[in-house]
C-alpha cells in the first residue's frame, strides 16, 4: 500500500491545501461556516415554519444533516477535481496519483471537523452535555469519509478524460440532497419505498449519526452491517476502477 514517504506526502499536501483555502481571506474559516449556517436558516424557516414539520430538536437535527451532507458533497467535488487541477505536476512527475485524491478528501475532512466543532458547541448550549454514546459518531463519520473517498476515486479517474462528469455530478448532488434525510426525518418515507430509499448509502449514515448524538441510542446492527457492506463495495470498486484506468487516461490530461 502506501509507504511512509507517501503518507508524509499526503500530510504535506493536505496541510498546505488546507492553509491555502483560508489564507487569502481575513475571516478565514468563518467563511466556511457561512454556508452551513445559511442553509440551516433557510431550511429551518421552510420546514419548521412553512411546512411545520414535527421533530424534536429540529435545529440540531438539521445542522448535523447539513454538515454531514456538505462534507460528502464537498469532498467528492474536490476529489473529482483533484487530479485534473494538479495536471502540471501529474504531467511531469510520476508518483501515486491517488495521493491527490486522498488528500483532497482529507482537506474536506478538516473543514468538516471545524464545522463539527461548531455543531458540538450548539449541542452543548441547546441540549447540554451529551452522553458517552455520542462518541460512537466517530464510526459513521469515518464510514462517510471512506464512502466519499471511494466515489472520488471513480469520479477523479473518469474526469481526467470525460470532463462533463463534472456537470453530471453536480446534478446528482442536487438530487442527492433531496433524496437523503437531511431536512426531514426518515420516518416520513412511506414504508413500501423505504427499502429503495435506503439504497442511498448516506441515508443510513446520517440516520445512525443522528441516533447516537441526538437520541443517545445505538444503531441497530442490521443498519450497521448494510452500511459497512455498501461502504466496502464502493471503496473497493472505486479503487479498482482507478487502478485499472487512470494510467491510460492520464495520457489525455
Amino acid at each position: 500500500m502506501l509507504t511512509k514517504q507517501e503518507i508524509s506526502l499526503i500530510k504535506e499536501l493536505t496541510i498546505s491545501e488546507f492553509k491555502l483555502r483560508y489564507k487569502n481571506s481575513v475571516l478565514g474559516f468563518f467563511w466556511s461556516l457561512l454556508k452551513p449556517l445559511a442553509m440551516l436558516t433557510t431550511l429551518y424557516i421552510v420546514f419548521r415554519i412553512f411546512i411545520k414539520i414535527n421533530s424534536e430538536q429540529y435545529s440540531l437535527f438539521l445542522l448535523l444533516g447539513i454538515i454531514l451532507w456538505n462534507f460528502f458533497s464537498e469532498s467528492t467535488v474536490f476529489g473529482l477535481n483533484s487530479i485534473v487541477s494538479k495536471r502540471g505536476i501529474v504531467k511531469k512527475i510520476n508518483f501515486k496519483y491517488g495521493i491527490l485524491i486522498i488528500s483532497a478528501c482529507l482537506v474536506s475532512f478538516l473543514s468538516f471537523l471545524l464545522n463539527f466543532m461548531v455543531f458540538a458547541i450548539f449541542l452543548l448550549f441547546i441540549k447540554g452535555l451529551p452522553s458517552l454514546i455520542s462518541l460512537f459518531i466517530i464510526v459513521p463519520i469515518i464510514a462517510l469519509f471512506l464512502t466519499s473517498l471511494g466515489i472520488s476515486f471513480v469520479l477523479a479517474t473518469f474526469f481526467i478524460k470525460y470532463r462533463d462528469i463534472g456537470y453530471l455530478w453536480d446534478i446528482i448532488l442536487q438530487i442527492g440532497f433531496w433524496i437523503s434525510p437531511i431536512a426531514y426525518p426518515i420516518e416520513i418515507i412511506p414504508a413500501k419505498y423505504l427499502n429503495i430509499y435506503m439504497l442511498n448509502p448516506l441515508a443510513n449514515l446520517i440516520t445512525i449519526s443522528r441516533g447516537v448524538v441526538l437520541d443517545n441510542k445505538f444503531p441497530n446492527p442490521k443498519m450497521m452491517l448494510t452500511s459497512f457492506i455498501t461502504l466496502l463495495i464502493i471503496l473497493m470498486l472505486g479503487y479498482a476502477i482507478y487502478k485499472l484506468k487512470h494510467r491510460k487516461f492520464i495520457e489525455y490530461i
Binding site: K4, Q5, S8, L9, E12, L13, I93
Partner: peptide
C-alpha cells in the same frame, strides 16, 4: 511540498 513530491521524506 516540492521536495515531498520529488520523493524526499
Amino acid at each position: 511540498l516540492y521536495s515531498h513530491i520529488m520523493g524526499l521524506n
